[in-house]
Amino acid sequence: MAFHKKEEFGKKEQELAEIAKALSHPARIAILKVLAQKSECICGEIVDVLPLAQSTVSQHLKELKNAGLIEGTLDGPRSCYCINWKAFERFTADMASLFTSLKAKHERACNC
């Protein structure tokens, strides 16, 4: 049986990895682009513009929501989603900090 060792890493590394994982599918990037064009969007509207089945879009929305990148509300049978801009701002700042740190360490290390 395989054991996950995510717990061996810091909270910041785990959070960055979770968001990066949520962004790692092209369908999720496309969904975010659709959501960015509107203040909110119904799941069916997203399905109409993507070459994916409704169930597939729903699964991708679930992954984005679980990562905190989008927020959603249920209105009867309809699901309405919007981007969580605060989460994106935190992610952007954290990634910029990571890249700055990596570059500084690289400049002090060997020249590969």
Rank of each mutant, 00 (worst) to 15 (best):
Q59N: 09
S79T: 15
V47D: 05
A96T: 12
L74Y: 13
A104I: 08
I46C: 00
D48E: 14
S24Y: 07
G76K: 03
P26R: 01
F3L: 14
A2W: 14
A20K: 01
K103W: 12
I31D: 02
L52C: 04
K65E: 08
D48A: 15
E89V: 11
T56W: 10
R108I: 02
H4T: 15
F88W: 06
E7A: 12
V34R: 13
A17H: 03
C43G: 09
C82D: 04
L32N: 04
M1Y: 10
I19K: 08
H60S: 03
S39T: 15
C110F: 14
A36I: 08
Q14G: 11
L16N: 01
I70C: 02
F91C: 03
K11C: 07
A67V: 01
E107F: 12
P77A: 11
G44F: 09
A22K: 00
S39A: 10
P51S: 06
K105V: 09
V57W: 00
L98W: 05
L16E: 02
A22D: 03
R28L: 03
D48V: 06
A93G: 13
F91K: 01
G44R: 11
P26A: 01
L50A: 04
Q37F: 14
C82Y: 03
T73L: 13
E8C: 08
L69C: 05
A96I: 10
C112A: 11
S101C: 08
M95Q: 06
K5Y: 11
M1P: 09
A22P: 00
A2G: 11
E45F: 04
V49I: 09
A30Y: 02
K38S: 15
F99S: 12
S24Q: 08
K105G: 05
R78I: 10
E89T: 12
Q14P: 06
F88E: 04
L64W: 00
S101Y: 06
D48H: 10
H60Q: 03
R90K: 12
I46N: 00
E18Q: 14
I29A: 15
F9T: 12
G72D: 05
R108M: 06
E13C: 12
E89N: 09
F91G: 02
S58G: 12
C41I: 13
E15R: 06
G72K: 08
K11M: 10
A36R: 13
E63T: 15
Y81I: 02
I83P: 00
D94W: 02
E18A: 10
T100Y: 05
A87G: 08
I19Y: 01
G10L: 01
F9Q: 05
E107H: 10
K5H: 15
L69Y: 00
I70H: 02
V49G: 02
F88L: 05
T73K: 15
A2N: 10
F3A: 09
K6N: 13
A2V: 13
C110T: 14
L32S: 04
G10C: 03
R28S: 03
L61Y: 05
V57N: 03
A53M: 12
E89S: 07
G44T: 14
V57L: 04
T73V: 15
E89F: 08
G76Q: 03
P51Q: 06
F99M: 14
L50T: 04
V34F: 08
L35N: 01
Q59D: 07
K21R: 11
E107P: 09
K6S: 12
